[in-house]
């Protein structure tokens, strides 16, 4: 048996974390991307820069600040304690919050690009055809931005799967709770179990390759379908 029970648990947890994070990111990222694509506000650049921060910061920095703010004396910690939820550090919920911050730009940027490419014209056509703003968003913007949503979901998911530093900082290494695949590989290497590490690491390489392959082939066919639309 190449993978231990703990390895399987780690892989399963990774996919749970990535799925939930992607779902939340699509919900949170869509309004942010829409606002960034449409606004003329002077806050556009500062907000855009904040969203992009995780692209350049070391994950340990994000993890450190999240650890502090989710701790018993931090802003998030105080809030969760007053709601009777305790603190989120070293919990799965804490990992989800960390992952949402960490993968935010990977979802917001493809969506923003897609919304900018659509422009105002289809929305104006929808308005003259009696569609209100929400109606137009769901019936015109969402279908036209579909390739952008697919890219955003794939990148958000894959990036969360590949997360290590943030997880280690705020989630630790609790089997079945916060021990994800990337951390489990680290454990195997620490304990000199290179064969085990190989199985997991190889699996990650294969997964990442398949994801990127799907993304690139989706993109090239997406391009030809945009041509049909023009």
């Amino acid at each position: 048996m190449p993978l231990t029970k703990a390895d399987f648990a780690a892989v399963l947890l990774t996919f749970e974390l990535a799925s939930l994070t992607t779902l939340l990111l699509l919900l949170i990222g869509t309004p942010i991307a829409w606002w960034l694509a449409r606004t003329d506000s002077r806050w556009k650049q500062p907000i855009g820069a904040i969203v992009a921060l995780p692209l350049v910061l070391p994950p340990t920095v994000i993890g450190f600040y999240l650890l502090v703010s989710m701790g018993p004396h931090g802003v998030i910690g105080q809030l969760t304690q007053s709601l009777g939820l305790g603190t989120l550090t070293f919990t799965f919920a804490g990992l989800v919050i960390g992952s949402v911050f960490y993968s935010l730009p990977f979802v917001v940027q493809p969506l923003q690009n897609a919304f900018e490419a659509i422009g105002r014209a289809p929305l104006e056509a929808a308005a003259t055809l009696r569609a209100g703003p929400w109606d137009a968003f769901f019936t015109v913007v969402l279908p036209l931005a579909k390739p952008g949503f697919v890219t955003a979901a794939i990148l958000g998911f894959a990036h969360t799967v590949g997360e290590f530093g943030v997880v280690l900082m705020i989630g630790g290494n609790i089997p079945g709770k916060t021990q994800v695949a990337s951390v489990q590989i680290y454990n195997h290497v620490e304990t000199m179990q290179y064969a085990q590490a190989h199985w997991l690491a190889g699996g990650m390489v294969l997964f990442s390759f398949i994801v990127l392959l799907a993304l690139y082939s989706g993109r090239s066919s997406g391009r030809s379908s945009t041509r049909v639309w023009q």
Binding site: A121, P122, E124, A125, A126, A127, T128, L129, R130, A131, G132, P133, D135, A136, T139, V140, P143, L144, T226, V228, W229, Q230
Partner: peptide
Amino acid sequence: AHQRAVGYVFQDANLFAHLTVRRNLQYG
């Protein structure tokens, strides 16, 4: 705009690229 009973014909038609002609017509 969406509450005014206007029909607007755009200079470049501005049809919805993701919908067939029939569904473009049905949209309004």
